[in-house]
Design a protein around this nucleic acid. Structure first.
Length: 273
DNA sequence: ATGATGTCCTGGGCGC
DNA sequence: TGCGCCCAGGACATCA
């Protein structure tokens, strides 16, 4: 999926396009994604105006001029697009269609359907089961050295796996975990509790890689697109991700790949201790 | 509680 | 051209 930079890029695109737009009609082209669509989604959203679009972790939150909030997660392959008018025919994986009162149409498309769209009330946004266990936002102050040291203290799992745990810090997925560990010089296999001494470097590196990716409009490997249909460009700046066998940009020895918790990890055996 | 593994789902790329 | 296999940016359930 889209990790934090991609979700934030989508959020900005959606907010630009949809702030103050009114939903005229909601059409669901199947009954579920990862979880069922709420039965009353059309009733609750039709006629409502979008006041703001926020992001928490990798979730998008659409605030309406009612009590209701629409929560969306892009999973691995979810996309939102905003079209000037309804397409002549929908494509296979266009699952949710939001017609706006000005004639435009917003489409949620998701080939693998690992995403979700659901609803909650505004007051529930921090206590909702999807949000209750989430850790701090990496770009905010609460993601501090003291916090991270504590969070890593009892964790024996490899640091890379732990950085992807959304209860530790949100928004960091498989690509940016590898990239951030390369920048901080930490071996992804190192038990988290032993890497805690590098908490400061890891925080700086996570922020740098996320900020830089955001500035490039995210990373487009195969699926990610902006709301406008453009690609992100940060994939051209990866130091290690997807570069196994190619020379490390620092020591020029080959970048290594391994599997951790079922996911590919890329790193330099010589630069990351 | 923690960690490792399997699962949801489709599509693209590769080797044969 | 076709087939089978493996891989993919996430998150959750399950089991030890």
């Amino acid at each position: 999926m889209p990790e934090l930079p991609e979700v934030e890029t989508v959020r900005r695109g959606l907010e630009q396009a949809l702030k103050d737009a009114t939903i005229k009609k909601v059409t669901l082209r199947r009954h579920n994604l990862r979880i069922p669509f709420p039965d009353n989604i059309s009733t609750l959203l039709e006629g409502r105006r979008i006041k703001a679009i926020r992001r928490r972790a990798k979730y998008l939150l659409f605030d309406f001029d009612s009590d209701d909030v629409m929560i969306a997660h892009l999973g691995m392959t979810g996309r939102f697009s905003v079209e000037a008018k309804a397409p002549k025919r929908f494509s296979k994986h266009d699952h949710a269609v939001f017609e706006l009162s000005d004639g435009r149409v917003t489409i949620y498309n998701d080939a693998r359907r690992f995403g979700l769209i659901t609803l909650c009330k505004r007051a529930e946004t921090s206590t909702h089961p999807l949000f209750a266990a989430l850790g701090p936002e990496p770009l905010e102050e609460e993601f501090s050295v003291a916090y991270l040291k504590t969070a890593l203290a009892r964790r024996k799992a490899p640091i890379k796996t732990v950085l992807m745990d959304q209860a530790v810090v949100v928004g960091v997925g498989n690509i940016y975990a590898s990239e951030a560990l390369f920048l901080s010089g930490v071996d992804p296999r190192k038990p988290a509790l032993e890497a805690a001494g590098k908490a400061k470097q890891m925080i700086v590196s996570i922020r740098k890689v996320l900020d830089d990716a955001l500035a490039s409009g995210g990373s487009s490997l195969k699926d990610f697109l902006h709301v406008s249909g453009e690609s992100g460009y940060f994939q051209h700046q990866f130091n290690v991700y997807g570069r196994s066998g190619k020379p490390c940009i620092s020591c020029h020895k080959p970048v290594a790949m391994l599997r951790q918790a079922g996911r590919s990890t890329f790193f330099c055996k010589y630069c990351q201790k």
